[in-house]
């Protein structure tokens, strides 16, 4: 099952749509509950830890991404998202940004992300993710932070901008 990807260059917007197994309520839980998120959020080979998740408009979701392999602290990525729309089972949007390990937001890293969930059949949903790219200023800022140094490969590096999740959970 592959995702449908649409790249809107002029508007700097990326849409990824994929069909997944599960009722809308379950898919919603996967996006909004730490116990589920840690099982899949992030690139393969990474794990995520979720420290704070207050599911309401204005609420904060804070997490850490780190490689499964041995790694230095500077390879960890700390994310801090602020929810905007919280419409159970169907629509979730948040401003996805980076933060320091103590939770201080890093200005200019916010990236608007919208997730919509629609049941297309019993126990099957279409998940649509729309990501708007950070401002050019944010891209310029992200480079010198050094946060991504040490990540391997292009994807991991870009991940920092898109804001990755990782996790293969299960300790």
């Amino acid at each position: 099952m592959t995702a449908i990807v649409d790249r809107d260059h002029a508007n700097k917007q990326l849409t990824v749509q994929r069909s997944v197994r599960g009722a809308a309520a379950l898919v919603w839980s996967c996006w909004t509950e730490p116990g589920h998120l840690r099982q899949w959020w992030g690139p393969r080979g990474w794990r995520s830890d979720h420290f704070e998740l207050e599911l309401r408009p204005g609420g904060v979701w804070r997490y850490r991404l780190r490689p499964d392999r041995e790694h230095g602290a500077d390879e960890e990525h700390w994310g801090r998202a602020v929810y905007d729309v919280v419409d159970p089972y169907s629509s979730l949007s948040f401003l996805d940004g980076s933060c320091t390990p103590d939770g201080t937001p890093i200005p200019g890293t916010d990236q608007p992300t919208h997730v919509s969930i629609k049941e297309s059949a019993p126990s099957r949903c279409e998940v649509r993710i729309v990501v708007r790219f950070p401002s050019v200023h944010a891209l310029e800022q992200a480079e010198p932070t050094g946060m991504v140094d040490g990540f391997t490969g292009a994807l991991a590096r870009l991940d920092e901008y898109v804001r990755p999740g990782s996790g293969k959970a299960r300790s």
Binding site: V16, V20, L26, V27, C30, G42, R44, I129, G165
Partner: peptide
């Protein structure tokens, strides 16, 4: 970028 999000969507799909 697309690859990152495709992978993420795939992980969610696999998990489910």
């Amino acid at each position: 970028f697309s690859a990152v999000w495709e992978e993420r969507a795939d992980r969610l799909g696999d998990y489910l």
